[in-house]
Design a protein around this nucleic acid. Structure first.
Length: 294
DNA sequence: CCGACAACCTGTGAGC
DNA sequence: TGCTCACAGGTTGTCG
């Protein structure tokens, strides 16, 4: 489930609860997610207080401060493909561990206990400690944040020259720009009218500008939509439907292009004149309109 | 350096 | 009902 908007949504939900809280206890069910969890180092954060809850790329960062040593550190949480991280609404009477729930963190906010739970069926996620953000191996390689002015049409145009890789693949490369996952990469290409399989080096200045704007717009709109269904996602077991109903191409293979055939209306309309195509790029489903995306 | 691909792991839904 | 297969929103590592 998590692309950047989902992670940002979780961050916004956790921040007010965790900021100012002190870590009291950590429990593990499994110590091997994508990487081995440095269990001792995580336990070492007990007693520390959260000063900020941030997002970098798709990583959540809980900044912590140790009043005793006056040192600062951070806990890093990644949701991978199937991860969820949420505050238990009923910490006084905590439910049994879910099948793929791997760790729990108990926090104290003034006199109020809080329970942070984490589940991840596929275990592509991660939990790590970050004593020095500038040196952390998962963070040092990351490219621009999409809302950073450094991610601009000029930059995109400049950094794609002579690149033969598909523009969609380039946009999904976190060493270049972070937070653009498979869904939003397809969506941004459609909005910009750029064919996702087009060699990155052949994207012109005008199209590069449109792509950058499209990436920002689609992420921003998805964040806004995520906020509106936040409770369903964080509080209970409800499946986040978020932005699904607003997608123009993703998972819409064979259905009418919203631009070429706006009155193609319902997704169950038969035989649209301008159907969305699906192809596979680097093993990932890629959706586009072959007519209006050049 | 670049680009293509396999790998990590489990769940779900479609088709038979 | 039960089996098999394709596929799933991320990221790293390796190989040519």
């Amino acid at each position: 489930m998590p692309e950047l908007p989902e992670v940002e949504t979780v961050r916004a939900w956790l921040a007010p609860a965790l900021i100012g809280s002190t870590l009291r206890r950590v429990e593990f069910r499994r110590e091997d997610l994508r990487y081995p969890i440095p269990v001792a180092a995580v336990h070492g954060h007990v007693g520390q207080r959260v000063t900020a809850v941030r997002r970098r790329a798709k990583y959540l960062l809980f900044d912590t401060h140790d009043d005793v040593s006056n040192g600062t550190s951070a806990l890093l949480v990644h949701l991978g493909m199937s991860g969820r991280c949420w505050l238990e609404p009923n910490p006084q009477d905590p439910p049994a561990w879910k099948k793929h729930e791997h760790w729990r963190m108990w926090w104290m906010q003034r006199d109020t206990p809080q329970l942070l739970r984490y589940e991840d069926a596929r275990r592509f996620g991660a939990l790590d400690v970050v004593p020095d953000e500038a040196a952390h191996r998962l963070l040092v390689t990351l490219g621009h944040e999409p809302f950073d002015p450094a991610f601009s049409g000029a930059w995109l145009h400049r950094s794609t020259r002579r690149r033969t890789t598909a523009i969609k693949t380039f946009l999904m490369d976190a060493k270049r720009v972070v937070g653009v996952g498979n869904i939003y990469a397809s969506e941004a290409c459609w909005r910009a009218g750029v064919h996702p399989l087009k060699p990155a080096g052949k994207v012109g200045r005008v199209a590069a500008n449109r792509l950058v704007q499209a990436v920002r717009d689609v992420l921003q709109e998805a964040i806004a939509a995520g906020g509106s269904t936040l409770k369903d996602f964080v509080g209970g077991d409800a499946n986040p439907g978020y932005f699904q109903q607003r997608l123009d191409v993703y998972a819409r293979g064979g259905q009418a292009c919203h631009r070429c055939e706006p009155d193609g209306e319902a997704d169950d309309a038969d035989a649209p004149a301008f159907p969305i195509s699906r192809s596979v790029l680097l093993g990932r489903a890629t959706y586009y309109c072959p007519v209006c995306q050049k």
